[in-house]
Design a protein around this nucleic acid. Structure first.
Lengths: 132, 132
DNA sequence: TGCGTACTTGCGTCATGGTGCAAGTATTGG
DNA sequence: CCAATACTTGCACCATGACGCAAGTACGCA
């Protein structure tokens, strides 16, 4: 029961660096956090379907949450690189950054495949008994 | 490259319920939420670099958080479809579900491109003044 | 300059989630 | 059967974040 729980493992040099292959470079928590909220999902899908720049008011008509909530979500998505904001007069237009977003997603997929033993053929980088 | 993507179902009740094109089908908040935490990122990168199934203990040595935290994160990642769990004796091995993960990511990238006015050529689906 | 439109921001509330510790379960070996 | 190993779970704590309301700011127009 009260087994001597292994205290925090001593830091290794690799741990200090924290680098763990190409996946580290491509997996951006900020981006995926932006994509992880259902409300934001519907906003993105709305603008994507629209295929053009949409104003905050237009997007707000798509969903049931408060106007201010939509404004905040769109600003966050722009900060995360998912959307691009452009102000025209008093209207703020948001559009999806298709190219950049697709590149990020495919980049992560490529990085994962590079690690995959079956496909990448260079998997199993560590054979020291420990992981990383 | 140009694979045959499922076309957007025309004017179904689903649309009234907030359906907004192929992006809706591919953008899974649960998956992206799993990928949105920095600690989980390092765990995934660790296992990915390893290229094989890793035990909880092995992975725990990679990062500075408590053993129990690693256990919970790995279980969550398995529930989200990022990892696959296999128990052997008293050891639990987790490995990355490369194929499924890559498919999900590329599927979203494809869906976005399908909406992109430049590439997909079918953008601007809504011209009614309102968005969606 | 005053007013209406379009959006942003401050604030309080509430739910979710990440964390560590301790205790619990499951499996193996002596 | 007992003890050790490997992992899971209950609990409390605290930070983050999503939300609505209301007030504030920015811009265009008469």
């Amino acid at each position: 029961m009260t087994q001597v729980r292994k205290r925090r493992p001593p830091a290794t040099p690799k741990q200090a660096a924290g680098y763990c292959g190409p996946v580290d470079d491509s997996l951006d928590p900020v981006l995926f956090k932006a994509l992880s909220d259902p409300t934001r999902k519907s906003l993105i899908a709305c603008i994507a379907k629209c295929g053009r720049g949409c104003s905050v008011g237009e997007v707000a008509e798509c969903c049931s949450v408060d106007f201010s909530v939509v404004s905040r979500h769109l600003a966050l998505l722009a900060r995360s690189g998912v959307l691009e904001a452009k102000k025209e007069g008093r209207t703020m237009y948001y559009r999806v950054r298709y190219a950049e977003l697709c590149r990020s997603l495919r980049s992560l997929a490529d990085a994962l495949e590079e690690c995959c033993p079956q496909a990448g053929a260079k998997g199993g980088a560590c054979s020291n008994g420990k992981c990383c």
